[in-house]
């Protein structure tokens, strides 16, 4: 009898050990993939290289804040700003996520001023829309320019970047109304940002689904019979960067994974077509084995960051 109890206990211990081991293995793989994803951005970010000033504010709302990564060299006449917008599905995320930190340290080490910016994201209660986020980011860019001047970093040009929802917002910042930015924008580079919110590209098959999708993103109150109306289309176009491309659009570097289950893989095509039609300088890097995190193609990761360096060198003067 005692032997049976001991064996049962041992079996339970083995089962628990197995479950814990699977979780440990899963965490190890996530750690490995993240390190591999950002290894090209690794720098030893000491005070000789640069500094970070955290939690500066640009407005009164709780998420109107940003982190500044500043190069140690303060002697130059002008600096270029890299304006980073975090992802999080328009409903979450933070300026301190690992991608922000890695990009910030790397780009500050290259002599750029890097700002990682928070914005008020949408919750079920606050009714915040993509346009509201865009407006906050425009305010942020203008406040950051003034703050940098105070700190002795005179900005004379900028680039916008981000991933996922941040990629979408970075493109809007760079393309929608560049005259509202404090300094000329010269470049956008982004990963997996939704470029079109045309509901059919997102799997909406009925008019009810289409208006529900558009209403969530725009805060409008369309009903099914509005589908196809001028106002309805205008609301979609207002947040779809693909419809804003013209011959004056700045160069754009883009990266997408065809296995993306979060952002519609179809939504990039209107943007790619518009860039081609308007002869806008751009480069699209496809990560063939990746989804939304672009984690499955280390060779493409290398290509993306090399191209980012080339674009920064080519289009920014500082």
């Amino acid at each position: 009898m005692k032997k049976v109890i001991v064996n049962i206990l041992f079996a339970v211990i083995c089962l628990i050990a197995f479950v814990v081991s699977v979780i440990v293995g899963y965490i190890m793989s996530a750690q490995y993939l993240t390190n591999r994803r950002y290894k090209y951005l690794n720098v030893n970010f000491t005070q000789d290289v640069g500094t970070v000033i955290k939690d500066l504010t640009y407005g009164e709302k709780p998420l109107n804040n940003y982190d500044l990564y500043l190069p140690a060299d303060k002697d130059r006449e002008n600096y270029s700003l890299i304006f980073f917008v975090h992802g999080g599905g328009f409903t979450g995320g933070d300026k301190s996520l690992i991608e922000a930190k890695k990009h910030g340290e790397y780009l500050a080490s290259k002599g750029y001023v890097f700002a990682s910016v928070n914005y008020t994201y949408a919750t079920t209660e606050n009714g915040v829309t993509i346009n509201d986020m865009y407006e906050e980011l425009i305010t942020a860019a203008n406040v950051i320019e003034k703050k940098c001047a105070e700190l002795g970093y005179n900005l004379n040009e900028m680039a916008a970047t981000g991933g996922s929802a941040g990629g979408c917002l970075a493109m809007l910042v760079g393309v929608k109304a560049p005259e509202r930015l404090p300094v000329p924008i010269k470049l956008v580079f982004e990963e997996t940002g939704p470029a079109s919110f045309e509901p059919d590209l997102w799997g909406c098959e009925t008019d009810e689904a289409r208006v529900a999708f558009v209403n969530v993103l725009t805060g409008k109150k369309f009903i099914a019979s509005d589908v196809g109306s001028e106002d309805y289309q205008e609301a979609i176009d207002e947040i779809s960067v693909a419809t804003m491309i013209n011959e004056n659009t700045v160069p754009i570097l883009l990266a997408y994974g065809p296995n993306d289950k979060i952002v519609s893989a179809e939504a990039k095509y209107p943007l790619l077509n518009a860039l081609k039609e308007n002869n806008v300088e751009h480069k699209y890097i496809e990560f063939p084995n990746s989804g939304h995190g672009l984690l499955g193609d280390p060779d493409k990761t290398k290509e993306y960051y090399r191209t980012m360096d080339e674009y920064l060198e080519k289009y920014l003067s500082n």
Binding site: F10, A17, F18, V20, S21, G291, G293
Partner: peptide, 30 residues
């Protein structure tokens, strides 16, 4: 006792390997 220890270690190794493979496939393809 020694036999049980070997079984437990084997279970842990298989568990970690399973987690790694599952993670690399699922997260890697995300």
């Amino acid at each position: 006792m020694k036999k049980k220890l070997i079984i437990l270690i084997t279970v842990i190794v298989i568990g970690i390997a399973t987690g790694l493979v599952f993670g690399l496939n699922s997260i890697g393809g995300l």
